[in-house]
Computed example of a mutant assay.
Amino acid sequence: MPPLYWFCLIGGFAVTLVLLVVGEVLEAALDALDGALEALDLGDAFDPLSSVAGVTLFGGAGVLLDTYAGLATAPEVAVAVLVGVVGAVVLHVVYVKPMQQSENSTGFSVREYAGKTGELATGVPEGGFGEVVVRMGASTTFQTAASFSGHAIPTGTRVVVVEVDADGVLRVAPLDTDDFAESPEQVGLPPRLQTRA
């Protein structure tokens, strides 16, 4: 059994080293492996990282038990397998599972900004661009903004995103139109966005 233990120990370290050095290159291969494992419907109980760690721990425990414990072959293999399985499960529960859950996308499309309110961090000059702060879910984002009507809007003004243009620039209008024009028509707001008559 010692050759098997050494093979698992050295092989596990080699796979880990290869993943560290050329991990980006092998990412597609591991994704394919994940896809194959999902096709087997093993659920979340199996992942390549935990498996490599389990095999490495099996080999290391086997080498140590063979060298120092003086056990018979069957108990030695049983303890080494137990150490490998427990180590793989602990790694999966403590590290892999939380990392998979943190990878859940919190992304959103720029088109989702339409209708959101925000505040200008940088004023929008007439015919120019500024910056608007908009909250999207738990995120606070800074986006390029332009005036929907073409009129200047000062810094700190509460605005609504009327539309998003093809370049991803947010076209905004002030929420309180009385401060910027005598009538909503001068500001250029659609009737549904007028906050005061």
Rank of each mutant, 00 (worst) to 15 (best):
V55E: 06
V55Q: 08
V55K: 09
V55N: 06
T56C: 15
T56N: 11
L57N: 00
L57R: 04
L57V: 12
F58V: 08
G59R: 01
G60I: 05
G60T: 10
G62Q: 04
G62P: 04
G62F: 01
V63Y: 02
V63G: 03
V63I: 09
L65Y: 03
L65K: 08
D66K: 07
T67N: 05
T67I: 04
Y68M: 01
Y68R: 11
A69L: 04
A69R: 10
G70N: 07
G70R: 02
L71N: 02
L71S: 01
A72T: 12
A72F: 08
A72W: 10
T73V: 15
A74L: 14
A74R: 13
P75R: 10
P75F: 02
P75H: 03
E76F: 07
E76A: 14
V77P: 11
A78S: 14
A78W: 04
A78I: 14
A78R: 05
A78F: 11
A80F: 06
V81H: 04
V81E: 00
V81M: 05
V81Q: 02
L82V: 14
L82F: 14
V83A: 09
V83M: 03
V83C: 12
V83N: 01
V83G: 06
G84N: 06
V85G: 05
V85N: 02
V85W: 07
V85D: 00
V86D: 02
V86N: 10
V86S: 05
G87E: 00
G87R: 11
G87A: 01
A88G: 13
A88V: 11
V89D: 06
V89R: 13
V90A: 03
V90P: 09
V90L: 12
V90Y: 02
L91D: 00
L91S: 02
L91A: 03
L91C: 10
L91P: 11
H92P: 00
H92Q: 12
H92G: 08
H92A: 13
H92N: 15
H92V: 08
V93W: 07
V94I: 11
V94D: 08
V94H: 03
V94N: 04
Y95T: 01
Y95W: 09
Y95M: 07
Y95E: 00
V96D: 00
V96A: 03
V96H: 01
K97W: 03
K97P: 05
P98E: 00
P98S: 01
P98I: 01
P98V: 02
M99T: 13
Q100G: 06
Q100I: 10
Q100P: 05
Q100H: 09
Q100E: 04
Q101F: 02
Q101V: 00
S102M: 07
S102H: 04
N104T: 13
N104L: 12
S105Y: 03
S105W: 01
T106L: 12
T106V: 15
T106P: 00
T106E: 11
F108A: 15
F108Q: 03
F108T: 11
F108K: 13
F108L: 04
S109V: 04
V110A: 07
V110S: 03
V110M: 09
V110R: 07
E112D: 15
E112K: 15
E112W: 07
E112M: 14
E112P: 05
Y113F: 15
Y113D: 06
